[in-house]
Structures are given as structure tokens and as C-alpha cells.
């Protein structure tokens, strides 16, 4: 078996007394798309920074591309592509110049960087924005330019910290398509996200992180199997009647979850569950049968509270 691209063992990062990352272990294999999933403040970005060799760990072992990031920062960073959470494109430079200048930071020869920049502008579907000011690009374009910039050194590992946060649906789909192509070309991806659909689209494997610790690990499908049912039935009886109705729903499906605005019934057959509800004489205002998603897993594992 080829050596893992990333190996983290009992990784801990503390800021004063607060453990942002609290004893996590995972492995990422070459060519894999691996996701870190979790609510805000779960420790995803801190983990990314340690893997990206821009943050030192408090304890535990970490190996990235065969090297220890605390000792070989520049060597590791030379082989990484980094897409940070918020765009930090160089606003004083034009679009293509951003790629050229960034490539030079890696000490790559000008000619090589220029050729690569043209390829990547095409890859990012920004051929007609070569001379555009960064400020004039849309959010999706900026994001694609940031990804193109991260690829200028032909990295062995691409780190993406919430790549599509803040983008509209169309821009997200374009971006997913680009990332999927990279995956097909064999680039190893490590990405954080709190979008479940994104994780399902892109990740071969993922860990769910909450409060600095790993709650679950596996492929999206296996996590859904383990922590949820095949289907979910969502019914609404009106805000003030949901609680009363839920008492009568016990026994239908595997599990009942009462939210302020609706009731979720986890069941292998959502339609059958709906039939049983109507047989009980209950008349939901709306009902929806859907496939179970990572969102259900995520909410079950991290708790249904709003995390500030």
C-alpha cells in the first residue's frame, strides 16, 4: 500500500487552556478526497492550518507528505495548494498576475509559471478575465481564481477550507465540477465544509468533528447507514400542534425527532410511514418524503442546537 499523504495521531492544538483540536486521528490516502465536516468552531480550520504547515501542534504526531510540518514547513508548503476560507487574492494585481506572482513565491521559473498560468486560467474558466481587476470579479470567479492560484505549483495535496461558503447555487455547481475534475486527475483533496451536500458530492471519506473531537468516520453512504435511516418523512402540523401530534407518532419508523417547526420520522419506507400517520387520523399540513442525507447524520451527531 502506498504511504498515506496525511497521518494524524492524537493531534492536539491548544490556545491557552482552550483545546481547538482535541486528540484527533485520521489518515488520508493518495488520490482520496477527504472531508472534515463540522459546525463553526469545531476545529476544522485549525486542523487545516496544522496540515498546511502554518500552525504548530501542541501535542500528538502529524505527518504530511512524509514530513513533519513543525520541522519542514517550507518543504511541505512547496507541495501544497491552499484555498483559504476567505479569499486572500492580491487586490493590487490583475487576475492572471495573481497566478504568476504566486508561482514566483514558490521559486518556480517565470516561463514555467507563465505557461501554467494560461492553463489554469482556462481550467478556472476565466480566459476572458485575464486582465480583470480582482475587485471586478464575482464571488464565484474569485473562488475559482483562488483555486487556480493554489494549483500553480502543481501540488500533491490540495487543502480547501470551506470552498463554496457564500456562493450562489450556480457558482457552487461550477466549482464542484472543477473540483471533481481534479479528483479524477488524481489530486488528493482535504476539504472542510459545513454543507452536507458538498460533502456527499465530493468526499470519498470524511470525519464529523465537533468541539475539537471526531464524532464519526466513514464514507458518506456508510455514515448515513449507520447513523440514520434510508428515508426521512418530514411532517408539519403547525407550530403549536407538533408536540401534541408527536406523542401519537411513537412506534412509527425507527426514531422520531421533534423540531419547533416540523417532525422528522426516520424510517426505511417514508411513504408507508405517511400512510400509517393518516390511518391514525392525523392530518399533517405538509408532508415530504426524502432520502436520508448527511445532514441528518450531522445533526444527530452534533446535536440540534444552534452553535454560536
Amino acid at each position: 500500500m502506498p504511504a498515506a499523504v496525511i497521518t494524524a495521531e492524537n493531534l492536539v492544538k491548544k490556545y491557552q487552556d482552550f483545546a481547538a483540536v482535541d486528540d484527533i486521528s485520521f489518515e488520508v490516502q493518495p488520490g482520496e478526497a477527504f472531508g472534515l465536516l463540522g459546525p463553526n468552531g469545531a476545529g476544522k480550520s485549525t486542523t487545516m492550518r496544522m496540515v498546511g504547515a502554518v500552525s504548530t501542534r501542541t501535542s500528538g504526531a502529524l505527518n504530511v507528505l512524509g514530513l513533519d510540518p513543525d520541522r519542514y514547513g517550507p518543504e511541505i508548503r512547496a507541495q501544497l495548494g491552499v484555498v483559504p476560507q476567505s479569499d486572500n487574492l492580491d487586490m493590487e494585481l490583475r487576475a492572471r498576475e495573481n497566478l504568476i506572482v504566486y508561482g514566483r513565491y514558490f521559486g518556480l521559473p517565470s516561463r514555467q509559471v507563465a505557461a501554467r498560468a494560461d492553463e489554469l486560467m482556462a481550467f478556472a474558466q476565466l480566459e476572458d478575465k485575464v486582465k480583470a481587476k480582482v475587485d471586478d470579479l464575482s464571488g464565484g470567479m474569485k473562488r475559482r481564481l483562488t483555486i487556480a492560484r493554489a494549483l500553480i505549483n502543481d501540488p500533491r495535496l490540495l487543502l480547501l477550507d470551506e470552498p463554496t461558503t457564500g456562493l450562489d447555487p450556480q457558482a457552487r455547481h461550477i466549482l464542484w465540477d472543477r473540483l471533481f475534475r481534479l479528483k479524477e486527475q488524481g489530486t488528493t483533496l482535504l476539504l472542510t465544509t459545513h454543507y452536507m451536500d458538498e460533502a456527499e458530492q465530493l468526499c470519498d471519506r470524511l470525519v464529523v468533528i465537533d468541539k475539537g473531537a471526531i464524532m464519526a468516520e466513514g464514507s458518506p453512504a456508510s455514515l448515513i447507514r449507520r447513523y440514520s435511516s434510508r428515508e426521512v418523512l418530514e411532517v408539519r402540523f403547525g407550530s403549536d400542534r407538533n408536540a401534541a401530534a408527536s406523542a401519537r407518532l411513537e412506534g412509527i419508523g425507527d426514531r422520531v425527532e421533534v423540531l419547533p417547526d416540523r417532525i422528522l420520522l426516520y424510517s426505511d419506507n417514508g411513504e408507508a410511514a405517511l400512510v400509517r400517520i393518516t390511518e391514525l387520523g392525523l392530518r399533517p399540513i405538509t408532508s415530504l418524503v426524502r432520502r436520508s442525507s448527511l445532514e441528518d447524520v450531522f445533526l444527530r451527531l452534533t446535536g440540534r442546537s444552534l452553535i454560536e
Binding site: G52, V54, G73, P74, E75, R77, A78, L80, V82, P84, S86, N88, L89, D90, M91, E92, Y102, Y105, F106, G107, N153
Partner: peptide, 14 residues
């Protein structure tokens, strides 16, 4: 504000 150095130090620059 422009986070220029964040970007630079994510490369092989020291």
C-alpha cells in the same frame, strides 16, 4: 486587511 502575508506564508516562503 488585505491578508497578503497569509497568502505568502502559505507558500514555501519563510
Amino acid at each position: 486587511f488585505s491578508k497578503l502575508y497569509d497568502g505568502m506564508l502559505a507558500t514555501s516562503l519563510g
